[in-house]
């Protein structure tokens, strides 16, 4: 059932600019660092002489949380808007499909889109490193993959929250405002206590306790999806 809804959603987001946005985010991040390293190549290479790949990853990482949070917010809102725009909920939910299937399909699709985004970031980072003539043999492949995937899993709670808000409020102003606020705050997240989920995307890569943070993100994300699902199932559809 869920797969049917997913296949339907796959068709519906066509031509909505969602995939474009998913590609723009990571490529923009990479381009920004390309500019940073391009302009100050000699200075930065000297600074990171001991571990140039590590330096590149560190620079990318500082913008990963804000990009992820923005991505979660916008993707959820755009996806929800496909249904909100012409009140398609009443048609969709009068079809022989459970609301659980509809909701989980939307969540799954959001995860797939953002995962593609994150893998693009990993690929883009590797590509940028090579363009900057960092040593190919020294490329820390595990770290390059980790920078895409680990912060993403740690931001699942926010994705779940944004999806819930976006799907259940017709006016997207509220969820987008909340998402933007969180994104901006994430710039200062390194100052926060480790227990606050805003900091998790950062911690999931740098540690301490990276694995626990990733597990925590997955668990808290699942809990929020569960709560959203209960609410969505009981809701009256106008």
């Amino acid at each position: 059932m869920m797969l049917r809804a997913l296949s339907s959603d796959w068709l519906k987001i066509r031509g909505k600019g969602i995939w474009f946005l998913a590609a723009l985010g990571p490529l923009g991040l990479v381009a920004m660092q390309g500019l940073n390293f391009g302009l100050r190549y000699d200075y930065l290479m000297k600074q990171y002489a001991a571990d140039p790949w590590g330096g590149l990853l560190q620079n990318i990482l500082s913008f990963v949380p804000i990009a992820l949070f923005l991505g979660c917010t916008l993707i959820c809102s755009l996806m929800a808007n496909v249904e909100h725009q012409l009140s398609s909920w009443k048609q969709l939910l009068a079809l022989p499909i459970s609301r659980t299937a509809v909701y989980s399909a939307k969540f799954t699709l959001a995860v797939i889109i953002l995962l593609v985004s994150c893998l693009l970031l990993s690929a883009g980072t590797a590509g940028l490193g090579l363009v900057l003539q960092l040593e190919r043999s020294e490329m820390p492949i595990a770290d390059v993959l980790r920078i895409g995937v680990a912060p993403f899993i740690a931001s699942l709670p926010l994705l779940a929250l944004q999806l819930w808000l976006s799907l259940t409020t017709k006016n997207q102003g509220l969820p987008v405002a909340i998402g933007l606020t969180v994104s901006v705050l994430s710039v200062f997240s390194y100052k926060l206590h480790d227990a606050i989920p805003l900091k998790w995307p950062l911690l999931a890569y740098t540690g301490p306790g990276a694995l626990q943070v990733i597990a925590g993100g997955a668990i808290l994300g699942a809990c929020i999806v569960g709560l959203g699902l209960i609410h969505f199932n009981r809701r009256d559809v106008d």
Binding site: G15, S87, W89, K90, Q91, I97
Partner: peptide
């Protein structure tokens, strides 16, 4: 139900296909 629900950016065939994939 009331005014029709449709996905404006899709064609009629695609709109119906989106429903058919579910049913």
């Amino acid at each position: 139900v009331e005014y029709p629900s449709y996905y404006g950016h899709l064609s009629a065939v695609e709109n119906l296909e989106a429903i058919r994939r579910i049913t």
